[in-house]
Design a binder for these strands. Sequence first.
DNA 1: AAATTGTTTTTTATCTTTAAAAAACTGAAA
DNA 2: TTTCAGTTTTTTAAAGATAAAAAACAATTT
Lengths: 301, 301
Amino acid sequence: MKSNAVFKRAHNRCLNMLAKHEPGSHLRSELDLALDLHVSRTTVRAVLSSLTDAGIIDRDGSRRHLARPPTAEDYFPEAQTESVGDVVGRRFMEWILQGDCRPGELINCAELARQFSTSTSAIREHLTHFNHFGLLERRPNSAWVFKGITADFAMEIYEIREMFELRSAHRFAELPPDAAAWAELNLIEQQHHNLLEDIDERYSEFSRLDERLHRLVHDASQNRFVQNFYDVISMIFHYHYQWDKVDEKERNYVALHEHIAYIRALRSRDLDAIDEKCRTHLQTARKTLLKSIDSLRQPAN
Amino acid sequence: MKSNAVFKRAHNRCLNMLAKHEPGSHLRSELDLALDLHVSRTTVRAVLSSLTDAGIIDRDGSRRHLARPPTAEDYFPEAQTESVGDVVGRRFMEWILQGDCRPGELINCAELARQFSTSTSAIREHLTHFNHFGLLERRPNSAWVFKGITADFAMEIYEIREMFELRSAHRFAELPPDAAAWAELNLIEQQHHNLLEDIDERYSEFSRLDERLHRLVHDASQNRFVQNFYDVISMIFHYHYQWDKVDEKERNYVALHEHIAYIRALRSRDLDAIDEKCRTHLQTARKTLLKSIDSLRQPAN
DNA sequence: AAATTGTTTTTTATCTTTAAAAAACTGAAA
DNA sequence: TTTCAGTTTTTTAAAGATAAAAAACAATTT
């Protein structure tokens, strides 16, 4: 019925924690573990009980201790730790990107549910989600229309992104000097330099830095609509990085330099410089996305 | 299980159509009626069959004709024509506006389902909807937090609204002279004048004009995110007009004049004038909303 | 042949159900 | 008296079930 992915994720993370301790050492209280693992104590108890059954922990009276170090076989496979929602979201994007559905086509919930081997309820929930992302449209008491990741989509998303990011960057520049964001910005810049030094090997780590930098800037907006909108961007990019690997190293190299210039402009608090560097970077990013979208259509023809 | 509100709405609308015809006159084809009533032919046939049972229409061979004019009793009561989704949406807003839930409080789906006498599924579906409206936030694998219609909410929504509406208004000014939007704008202006002439009696009709004017402007943006965002505004205003009746006539009088100035600026295509009139109006509107929000808190204290 | 009605199949909206997870309660121990 | 583990209750996530509505197909009339 309901998957126990929450339990399995907590189980695996608990094993990670235990791996850092010596056999014989005592475990912390159930409440502490619950807070650490971001689950309820009920779930922690289920985990502890399964770890006890596996002989990994043991109890003397009311306290528990590590009986043996966990091994690779004690972990649940990665695939089982994904919640139904995440699976549907991922498979839906894959389905879109593989061109199984063309812009303008109607979406068949029942068919998708079958294909993703889940219930129509789960599908429906995610259709409303993607509706809000501008990828779908609901026809009143009728089917859903797939609008597609098209050039229009990219243009529209970038129009908003530019408005929002420029506004947020200005707010960022106005942050008091002791704001935590400045420290985070410095840290992010340092990581840009580190990445550049080893670009040949680690270029694919750029996407995570990209997300962190832009999210940091957007958060300065203090506006829930700006922040929510970044979720749309973030999702598109998450998949974009996976679907288009052409020239990835070169693209990331350019983007890293643009980021560094943007970060410096932010630190200078010079609004004109910020606008210029931000616009330059977003224009490059838009071009890249448009090119990738163009390439999306090719294989299916 | 599933309510037949679609059928009942179609039934009532069909009666309205029939009321315009003489007894004995023939009905159009099922397909024609389906297109008119925005439902499937299946539903039209269900309606026709129930009208036949009620003796309102009759058939000679394969064609149908009006047997007697419909009366008030033939209609389904208004309340039964609302879909479950609409009911939940409405009751949820009422619940918020009555102050049954304070900002920061957790929302209990099961409790709401009980209170609204519907299922938790219907509630869940609407929570995701209101999440996207910035009124709620989902705590990861946990409950929903109500964020509230607060001054922050109004400030944030107006920050975006101003950005979007100024951008859209500029696009509007660039529309070719033969665009249908200009004709609609003229029509809307005329209706503003008509309303002003009878302001004492008809002031409450302003809200529909307001929606039409701003929607028209936003649609010129040709951007789905701008258009979707207007749905948020529209929903808030829909309820705002109901919850705060203080000085309604005076407020609407002022807004009508601001609208007319804004419309004239749009027609002049002078971007500076547009910006000025648009800003003026939005600032007034924001002030009004903030004042109403302030008054929301009073009764509960 | 095109349009229309009759019939069957498919899909959607929404309720119900239930395991998983969270929360609340309770008594024991530090 | 605060903190913990044990127990019970409540709530949520997600599947399953089914009437309503749509869509597809077939037969008939114009």
